[in-house]
């Protein structure tokens, strides 16, 4: 890209900066505001008051939003969903991208067709099925649906590095007399690490943000996840913006932290082969 007119790189950097601001500014604003008392936040004449800096909103989180409990619940649900989605998606990806059999295309299409059905449509029947099988009002009900809606797309997300390995490797190995399992080990094992990162991150994020099912399938307070806890702060007669912004920051934080750590591998995983 060196052979561009001189102005272009500057322009591009400016545009990149603008893009990062569009994404980032709302969050920065949210973080700044979480250190302000509600009385300042709702005052049309005062946007921000540096001298009113306070940690009070965060101090109130444990008692007024039961925050530690719902944070733990969210973590458990997201981690468990991730643990199930990973093997399911890895196996399916291998099946779809590295093998040939009649019906394979149908399998692939079925994985995409999942997204034809809106969650709302499935709400009532799932409630019934779950209550019949004793899964209702447990984390398992959320975990099951998180896997349902994240694993199929994870398969597609992994296509990059599954297709990046030349098929010749397997064929050559087969000719050398390697068994199925040996081939598998040679192909699948190297793919496991990026697969875990990609599927894991995607499922974790999906589970962390899931709202609809969590709002209906859980009855016990003690089981509720973060989005539901946050909803409790939003829909009341009076919205406590200070408390809410602190809760929002703390909800975003774990997953942003995870992303800061694993995000690079996620991006690399999705962007395929290159890091192999």
């Amino acid at each position: 890209m060196a052979a561009r007119p001189l102005a272009a790189p500057v322009m591009r950097n400016l545009l990149t900066l603008l893009m990062l601001l569009v994404i980032g500014l709302p969050f920065i604003w949210m973080i700044l505001s979480s250190f302000q008392p509600t009385s300042v936040l709702i005052n049309p004449r005062e946007l921000f008051r540096p001298d009113a800096f306070t940690l009070e909103n965060y101090a109130r989180l444990p008692s007024e939003a039961n925050f530690l409990l719902i944070l733990r619940n969210s973590l458990v649900v997201a981690l468990a969903s991730t643990a199930i989605a990973i093997p399911l998606a890895l196996l399916a990806a291998y099946s779809v991208y590295r093998t040939r059999y009649r019906g394979r295309q149908t399998v692939y299409l079925l994985l995409l067709v999942v997204y034809v059905f809106p969650g709302i449509l499935l709400l009532a029947p799932l409630f019934k099925l779950f209550s019949m099988s004793g899964v209702l009002n447990t984390w398992l009900s959320l975990i099951i649906m998180n896997v349902t809606f994240s694993a199929p797309f994870s398969v597609w997300l992994m296509r990059g590095f599954f297709t990046s390995i030349p098929h010749g490797i397997e064929e050559a190995a087969a000719i050398d007399g390697a068994t199925d399992m040996q081939i598998l080990r040679r192909i699948i094992v190297p793919l496991t690490a990026p697969g875990i990162v990609v599927t894991g991150t995607y499922t974790f994020v999906y589970s962390w943000t899931e709202f609809l099912f969590a709002s209906v399938f859980l009855i016990d307070d003690s089981l509720k996840t973060l989005p539901i806890g946050l909803e409790g702060l939003v829909t009341q007669y009076s919205i406590d913006w200070g408390l809410l912004s602190a809760a929002a920051v703390m909800t975003a934080l774990p997953v942003v932290a995870l992303f800061a750590f694993a995000g690079r591998y996620f991006v690399e995983g999705v962007t395929a082969g290159a890091s192999k």
Binding site: A124, S131, S215, D221, E231
Partner: peptide, 22 residues
């Protein structure tokens, strides 16, 4: 024992709960 619901989803939750006897 109290269990906290919300006005936002009680209409979706109560009927199947009744149907399921819970």
């Amino acid at each position: 024992v109290q269990q906290v619901q919300s006005w936002g989803n009680i209409y979706q939750k109560l009927p199947p709960a009744v149907e399921a006897g819970i």
